[in-house]
Amino acid sequence: MAVLITGGAGYIGSHTCVELLKAGYDIIVLDNYKNSHPESLNRVRQITGKDFKVYQCDLLDEKTIEKVFEKNNINAVIHFAGLKAVGESVQIPLKYYECNILGTVYLCNVMKKYNIKNLVFSSSATVYGVPESIPISEDSRIKAMSPYGRTKQMLEDILRDLYTSDQDWSIALLRYFNPIGAHESGLIGEAPSGIPNNLMPYITQVAIGNLEELTIFGNNYPTKDGTGVRDYIHVVDLAKGHLKALEKVSKSTGVEAYNLGTGKGYSVLEIVEAFEKASKIKIPYKITEPRKGDIAISYADPSKALKELGWIAEKGIEEMCMDSWRWQCKNPNGYTVNQEVLSK
């Protein structure tokens, strides 16, 4: 079975490539490298000992996308590609709507033309906005608070409409909570450009010396220590969730949403403490004003994924921190510098 992975060179995409190859799937990767680096795919080959086709192209280029489908016998698609920073989406909303929504529509147009109707879609827990109750179930109210979150919310609606129009489609909407960690080899991990948007790479870059201190946004939330609480999930567990979703869409039709999280919440300060314990490094930090749109507490009810996909997160917070630190130590400046070293 051949699976097309859009955005396969990215953080979650590269880890999913590893798990798919380990499970015996053939993969074809499509990426424009705007949020990723081609070296990650070389590392995937190194980890698995397997080769695969890679196409550098953009989903907004529908004609080029169609050529990928012409040249390959694709059975299903896992769709990661898109812009993903909440803060940035507030600054350049039109770019997010163009890239995320039009890119997905173009992809689905080509899938429909080639009669490929099995899709695993990368959604987000941001679709829930401020949760009415905790833990958050798939039946919770959907009310995204950022342009990024609204692109995911709109795309979920678009994909449901697509199924309504043609009930041969089989679509899994995977609502991620907060992926952290890295592959245990330390060869692939999260490599943001500039100052990280997410907590764990911010912490690891402070620990490695690339940044002076961690900025914590707000300490007056109604939580045990005043800092925001989130559901952190190991990226390898998250990748394995895509395999389970792929199995599901290959056997049935319909559209279903699934939370991929651990069902446990950790505050920012608890994550800092867990990382300090794993790395033996003290993390300096400062408290600033809360960011607009941030919520106090968010963690998943993942019981539907267990019941319907047979998936559950297995890795704990200590392993998430240790794997994140191993990746950062081996790759202090992400993939770019390492690529220069490898080419010498």
Rank of each mutant, 00 (worst) to 15 (best):
M1D: 12
A2V: 08
L4A: 06
A9Y: 01
G10S: 03
I12N: 01
S14M: 04
V18Y: 05
E19C: 06
L21K: 00
K22T: 10
A23F: 00
I27V: 14
V29E: 09
S36E: 00
S40C: 02
V44Q: 04
T48H: 09
G49P: 09
G49E: 09
D51A: 11
Y55I: 07
L60S: 04
L60T: 05
D61P: 05
E66N: 02
K67Q: 14
E70G: 02
E70H: 11
N72R: 03
I74H: 08
V77Y: 10
H79I: 07
F80Q: 04
F80K: 00
F80V: 00
V86W: 07
G87F: 06
E88I: 09
S89Y: 01
Q91H: 09
Q91F: 04
Q91T: 11
P93M: 06
P93F: 05
Y97G: 14
C99D: 11
C99I: 13
I101P: 08
L107H: 10
C108R: 06
M111T: 00
K112E: 14
L119F: 06
L119W: 01
V120N: 07
F121I: 10
S122F: 02
Y128A: 03
G129Y: 04
V130I: 14
I134W: 01
I134Y: 07
P135K: 01
I136N: 03
E138A: 05
E138D: 11
K143D: 13
R150L: 12
Q153R: 10
Q153S: 14
L155W: 04
S165P: 03
D168Q: 15
I171V: 13
A172N: 09
F177W: 08
P179R: 11
H183K: 05
I188W: 08
P192Q: 07
I195T: 15
P196I: 00
N197C: 08
N198E: 15
M200T: 12
I203D: 09
T204G: 05
E212T: 13
I216Q: 08
N220F: 05
D225I: 01
G226Q: 00
V229W: 02
V235Y: 07
V236R: 04
D237C: 09
L238T: 10
L238W: 01
K240T: 01
H242A: 08
K244T: 00
E247Q: 15
K248I: 01
T253R: 12
G254W: 12
V255F: 09
A257T: 03
L260Y: 05
L260R: 02
G261K: 02
G263I: 00
G263K: 01
V268S: 05
I271R: 02
V272C: 06
V272A: 05
A274K: 14
A274P: 04
F275L: 03
E276C: 06
I281R: 14
R291C: 11
I295L: 04
I297Y: 09
S298D: 09
A300N: 09
A300V: 03
A300I: 00
P302T: 08
K304I: 06
A305G: 10
L306D: 10
K307G: 00
G310A: 11
G310F: 10
E314I: 07
K315H: 13
G316Y: 03
E318L: 10
C321W: 05
D323P: 06
S324L: 04
W325F: 14
R326T: 15
K330F: 09
K330M: 15
N333C: 06
G334A: 06
T336Y: 11
Q339W: 11
E340L: 15
E340Y: 15
K344L: 13
K344C: 10
